Amino acid sequence: MTTLAGFIKGLPKVELHLHIEGTLEPELLFKLADRNNIRLKYDSVEELKQAYQFSNLQEFLNLYYEGAQVLLREQDFYDLTWAYLEKCKAQNVVHTEIFFDPQTHTERGILFATVINGINRALQDGREKLAISSKLIMCFLRHLDEASAFKTLEEALDYKDLIVGVGLDSSEKGNPPSKFERVFAKARDEGFLSFAHAGEEGPASYVKDAVELLKVVRIDHGISSIDDEYLVAELVQKQIPLTVCPLSNLALQAVDDLKNHPLKKLMDHGVLVTINSDDPAYFGGYMNENFEASAQSLGLSKGDLCQLARNAVVASLLPEQEKEQHFHAIEQYCRENA
């Protein structure tokens, strides 16, 4: 009889909501700062970790952007991405769809090519050496203006072979999806898929706008959808997935207690919910930790966990043949470990 933690560890998982800059562990941050001769305002890893106490999204973002300052060279982005992929291997994450924020770097003079080439080289090595498949999604920073997003989209056109879609992240409050409607229309015209963070700190209406105005294929977070029964019905009817990040929601106080997280309620309504880690270096857990915390707080059964694993495959951008292979692996594992 395996423990719940043991069951989760062995369960084949797919991650759909992961910011690569948010995987920058304090130890690697200090290593890169030293390599690039950058002086940090924290004297030790322990002191930096103590700063990871957030009361809202903006407090986290301030530290997130500050941490990204150590990423200067292509090798830095490679090392960052490779460290995450090794974590995936250890936690049996078999496929990952990764966000990156080019504006976080281009705004400080780093070339777009430097960022994407470092990340992509690691993803290629991940496929060949670790057997982890991946997709790359470029996010616009919603606290910046539309012109900056258009400029970033223009830079991305040379990398259509590497980037499958565009997303929307950063400060949600006061930056509704409508602010980027024209940019997303242009991105779709160029062949990119649409994704957007909505309904984390923002209201359910932001989720609705992301669906209707940005024509998203997935909603990132989306937990405030539970406040609008008509929206929930629409998400079910259209089978628009939610990439939920429980430990992130708790760390940023989008929920006061994981016992009150709407994940299970959304599942029970028939919404295509998935579990993900968001910015795991800052929020205290990667995929397994998010699965465990959710299971313990919400009383999820092994059957629920298997359903969440299947949901992520359904919601992924993988070709149907690869999806079938992952479904088979999940079914076999769940049957043998019931």
Results as ranks from 00 to 15, higher is better:
residue 234 E to H: 10
residue 176 P to Q: 01
residue 245 C to A: 13
residue 284 G to P: 06
residue 178 S to Y: 06
residue 6 G to P: 00
residue 179 K to L: 02
residue 274 T to L: 07
residue 121 R to K: 14
residue 56 N to V: 03
residue 31 K to I: 08
residue 336 E to W: 00
residue 121 R to F: 08
residue 187 A to N: 06
residue 73 R to N: 15
residue 113 A to N: 00
residue 2 T to S: 00
residue 287 M to L: 15
residue 21 E to W: 04
residue 263 L to S: 09
residue 334 C to K: 00
residue 126 G to V: 03
residue 14 V to G: 02
residue 255 V to C: 04
residue 217 V to M: 11
residue 233 A to D: 14
residue 150 F to S: 07
residue 248 S to V: 03
residue 170 S to R: 01
residue 59 E to P: 04
residue 283 F to A: 07
residue 323 K to Q: 10
residue 32 L to N: 11
residue 144 L to R: 11
residue 27 E to Q: 13
residue 264 K to M: 11
residue 194 S to W: 00
residue 295 A to P: 10
residue 15 E to I: 02
residue 49 K to R: 14
residue 7 F to S: 04
residue 69 Q to C: 11
residue 283 F to M: 13
residue 91 Q to W: 13
residue 328 H to W: 12
residue 108 R to W: 08
residue 56 N to K: 00
residue 302 K to T: 12
residue 74 E to T: 02
residue 206 Y to E: 00
residue 217 V to L: 10
residue 90 A to M: 02
residue 72 L to N: 12
residue 142 R to M: 07
residue 327 F to D: 05
residue 61 L to C: 10
residue 195 F to Q: 04
residue 29 L to I: 06
residue 282 Y to N: 07
residue 238 K to I: 13
residue 45 V to T: 11
residue 251 A to T: 10
residue 20 I to M: 07
residue 148 S to T: 14
residue 322 E to C: 07
